[in-house]
Simulated scan of single mutants.
Amino acid sequence: MPEETLAARAADDFAAVFGGPPQGVWAAPGRVNVIGEHTDYNGGFVLPTALPHTTRAALALRTDGLLRIASVQQPGDVVEVPVAGLRPGHPGGWAGYVGGVVHELPAAVAGGLSVLVDGDVPAGAGLSSSAALECAVALGLRDLLGLDLDTVELVDVARRAENDFVGAPTGLMDQSASLLCTAGHALFLDTRSREARQVPLDLASAGLELLVLDTGTRHAHADGGYGERRRQCEEATAALGVAALRDVPDVAALDALADDVLRRRARHIVTEDARVLEVVRLLDGGGDPRGIGPLLTAGHASLRDDFEISTPELDVCVAAALGAGAHGARMFGGGFGGSAVALVDVADADRVVRAVTERFDREGYTAPAIVTAVPSAGARRLR
């Protein structure tokens, strides 16, 4: 659907709920991570790309000190809370991602705000629908209020909303991707230095597609498994005496860890950073992108065996895609559910989708939802 149509629909829905037009409509995309899982909070490297799927936020300032939030996807559920009454965990649920952004800018938004949310980033699929919502609202508030915040500062506002307000201990990759990505590229981000650059990812001209295969199994960063992996990485970091696991020179150095679980967690991070750098090298070289396929598959094995965050559905998805001719496949996101990604020839895409769907049917799983990850633009104002 054209962006002008999406913006008009959001504006109309805003008026229907709040009785007047918004002062603007902003959009921010979800993301798929090409490679680099759980490396962001370990000071390492990531390579996400933005999706064409976006969350839209229509905004208008108020004068009564209230934050009122409505969503097209949650009809009839208008959340209302005084801006002065915002606190971590209140409001909860989906509205907390909006509340968290406003909570980060209390003086600027003291008069109140009306927000209408609409979007097509699948929730719970590991596509960072939460960051898309945070970034759409954060960018909208910067523009609407004329705030002196650069894009890196906006990333931090959105990340703190998720970490400190919602309570999900994520790194900064998702918000960075949503705000910084450009069409036709992946974002190579050093999460420690914050240095970022665009890496060419023109799959279409190579006859390739990046399929996102949503298993439909629940994925939630605020749940305990993600936080436990983060704590284990922190324990391994402390035991090794380094500032971050990215500073471990090689896998052999992990022999100093007596605990097998910590050793395996750290091994995933060390080898995943190396995979990110190799994928970037291959893409920068202008060669055939099919060459990154084995690195994607190796990343899945590491997430499954060393980091232990895959699920039977994700493993079946990856195996079926590879068996049907995918050049590489892996789970992505926080783990414990969500989606896998498969790099396929355009000519083979239908066969891969059919193979995954048929395998899911045989295993008794719900048929996966399939979208194509077209490297797209980051957050922007629509009207």
Rank of each mutant, 00 (worst) to 15 (best):
F14N: 06
A319N: 05
T191H: 12
L116A: 09
G146D: 09
D288L: 12
T170I: 15
Q232V: 10
E363T: 13
L149Q: 01
T182D: 07
T49W: 11
T237W: 05
A11D: 04
T49R: 08
V270Y: 00
G334N: 05
R68F: 03
I292M: 11
R380N: 09
V32Y: 02
L296P: 05
A340E: 02
L180T: 03
R197L: 12
A349Y: 02
A244I: 12
E104Q: 15
L113I: 05
V280H: 00
L179Y: 14
S129E: 12
A301H: 14
R218W: 09
A132E: 09
V371I: 11
A110E: 11
G184I: 07
I269D: 02
R265S: 08
L282D: 01
V46Y: 01
V157N: 02
D345E: 13
V152I: 15
E153N: 07
V212T: 06
A326G: 05
S114P: 04
G30S: 09
A131W: 03
E195L: 09
E308L: 10
R275W: 02
D223L: 11
P52K: 10
A8P: 00
A244L: 15
S302V: 01
G119W: 02
C135E: 09
V242E: 07
S205D: 12
G337A: 05
H327A: 04
R246W: 15
P82Q: 04
P294V: 08
V115F: 01
V17W: 02
P375H: 06
A177Q: 15
V117P: 03
S310G: 10
D273P: 01
A253P: 01
D202C: 14
G364P: 07
V117D: 00
D315P: 10
L86H: 03
L154Y: 07
C233I: 13
E272D: 13
T372H: 10
L113V: 06
A28G: 11
G293W: 00
P48T: 11
A58I: 08
G36Q: 04
L322N: 00
G24F: 14
E363G: 10
V32T: 12
L322Q: 01
V32N: 05
D118L: 15
V276E: 03
L172W: 08
